[in-house]
């Protein structure tokens, strides 16, 4: 059974087409990244998957059920973008309430509320109200509510938006620690973060799915080597890289950043030649990556 199946899903807000005949399938596996520019339809897609709104046409199946189905309670959870908890109740009271709605007894619900708060390192604020917390803390609490009852599928819409780097890393580590028992689908603009976390990517633009790929996939018959420089004369370095053995093409993706396209290779001969070239000119590199970044995979001219 597919985790998520969307078939020709369309949704419009007035004259604006938010989702346009979108079709894709998500099977169980590692976390899935949902990427796209602002206004691409990511949040609209999540809203349809969670049952917050119905699409104008097409069909959606989540864990074998229609979105919003009672059968999904406790199995599907989500971090809705910009949703606020009730300002009148403490965090613990609300999480306990949610857990009780999922079928737990009062005592079980209280224990579960504290467990998920511990996962996001916020046990100490359980008795505080949302208005007493910072934006980052509220975001972490919202992530915690999505983990109540160990759901099978969790949709996270911009989980690290507005979080400082330390909290971003903590959330990333949390998702990594849970990914064996929970399937995540994560919408984010932070490609570096998604690259560290996700095993596949869905790229949406103007409401349509334009790319679906594995994060670490290699194109048939092609390998890549990514080089990021601290200091270098790009105009001299580029032709020098093109002359290296086995390099078929070099693309400069940004100042000081190069992606070398090669035949599939064994060993580290090319890496040695690159390092010797840099050493000969006294150039310092920042990063040498076997493969290419998610950003380059999605947006380079050759992708």
């Amino acid at each position: 059974m597919s985790l998520i199946k969307c078939d020709q899903v369309s949704l419009s807000y007035g004259s604006h087409r938010a989702l346009d005949c979108l079709s894709f399938t998500v099977e169980s596996g590692g976390p899935v990244a949902l990427v796209g520019p602002n206004g691409a339809g990511k949040t609209s897609l999540f809203s349809c998957l969670c049952g917050y709104q119905r699409p104008d046409s097409g069909s959606i199946s989540v864990l074998g059920h229609a979105p919003g189905s009672a059968a999904l309670a406790g199995r599907l959870a989500a971090l809705p973008q910009d949703a606020k908890l009730d300002a009148r109740f403490s965090i613990k009271a609300q999480l306990t309430y949610f857990a009780r709605l999922q079928g737990m007894s009062a005592k079980q619900a209280q224990t579960e509320a504290m467990r998920v708060l511990a996962l996001v390192d916020l046990e100490g604020i359980a008795d505080k109200q949302p208005s007493e917390l910072s934006h980052g803390m509220n975001k972490r609490v919202s992530i915690a509510q999505a983990l109540l009852g160990n759901p099978e599928l969790v949709l996270l819409d911009e989980p690290t938006a507005g979080l400082d780097p330390a909290n971003t890393k903590a959330i990333r580590e949390l998702i990594k620690s849970l990914k064996d028992q929970t399937q995540f689908m994560i919408s984010s603009h932070n490609l570096d973060e998604l690259e560290k976390l996700c095993s596949s990517v869905l790229y949406i633009d103007k409401g349509q799915l334009t790319k679906s790929m594995a994060v670490e996939s290699a194109d048939a018959g092609v390998s890549y080597l990514t080089l990021k420089m601290m200091n270098a004369d790009d105009q001299t370095l580029l032709p020098a890289l093109e002359r290296l053995t086995g390099v078929s093409k070099v693309e400069q993706t940004a100042a000081g950043e190069f992606v070398l396209q090669t035949q599939p290779r064994q060993g580290h001969q090319l890496e040695s030649e690159v390092l010797q070239l840099l050493s000969a000119h006294g150039w310092q590199y920042r990063m040498l990556l076997n493969g290419r970044t998610l950003e380059d995979s999605l947006f380079s001219a050759s992708s």
Partner: peptide, 17 residues
Amino acid sequence: TDRQQGTLRFLLQRASR
């Protein structure tokens, strides 16, 4: 208010409309 602030979305994951 709960509709405008998205609070109902937390409930919708656990209860029907």
